[in-house]
Design a protein around this nucleic acid. Structure first.
Length: 217
DNA sequence: GACCAGGCACATC
DNA sequence: GATGTGCATGGT
């Protein structure tokens, strides 16, 4: 079976096994963006606690997030871990939005997605996964999101070299699959789902719904 | 108590 | 350019 067929086959198998994942779990675009920053190397359960704290204080708008003191913001997002760093990251994004798009997400998202991606990467605290998550899940652009699970799963199935970088892994998907936002949305979410169950750092491969080449594990 | 989670920036070699 | 380290909470 070709690499292309396997990449497509993974999606079919995962969707059949798990069904639609309903990402991104957020009520607004702004909440989605906050979630992409808060979930960096952090379990979603802890992110939910942080988001709940922000909502309880009414910090659900660009204006409120612009005016809240950074140490207050940090305390509210404490449960998500790295809270001092993440408070700075959120402030950096809000500043970027205010200075370049008059604080309006709809203006930011009118930008060409390749150009916007580069600008987002210029914000301190926004790396490739966070930028692509914002583009895919908040802006609904057809960009494939790569994360640690994506790397682990493809690597263990010998579909990418061990030393692949972010862009190379992203290209595997984007070269093979149709540019379909909803497909990219589900596929990434399904990789996270199956990764949590079967492809942790110390692998638990039993019962994995993906057919498997004995490779490294 | 160890391990790990939907990363990223920065220092050092 | 590659490799290592700090950031931090909370569940399993």
């Amino acid at each position: 079976m070709s690499k292309s067929e396997r990449i497509k086959g993974f999606y079919t198998a995962l969707f059949r096994r798990y069904g639609p994942q309903g990402w991104w779990p957020a009520e607004t675009q702004l909440e989605c963006i906050l979630g992409t920053i808060l979930t960096q190397n952090t379990s979603w359960m802890n992110v939910e606690k942080a988001l709940k704290n922000l909502k309880s204080k009414g910090l659900t708008s660009i204006e409120k997030l612009s005016s809240v003191p950074i140490h207050i913001l940090g305390e509210l997002i404490r449960p998500s871990g790295y809270f001092n760093q993440k408070a700075i990251k959120i402030k950096n994004f809000i500043k970027f939005l205010n200075e370049n798009y008059d604080g309006r997400l709809e203006r930011m998202f009118k930008e060409d997605s390749n150009k916007l991606r580069e600008k987002l990467l210029g914000i301190k605290g926004i790396g490739p996964e966070t930028a692509d998550s914002i583009l895919l899940y908040a802006a609904k652009k057809s960009i494939f999101v790569v994360d640690a699970y994506t790397y682990r799963i493809l690597s263990r199935h010998a579909l990418i070299p061990e030393d692949s970088d972010y862009r190379e892994i992203q290209e595997v998907f984007m070269d093979i699959l149709p540019k379909d936002t909803q497909l990219f949305n589900e596929y990434h979410a399904l990789l996270v789902k199956v990764g949590k169950e079967h492809c942790r750092k110390k692998p638990i491969c039993e019962g994995c719904p993906l057919e498997y080449d004995p490779h490294t594990v």
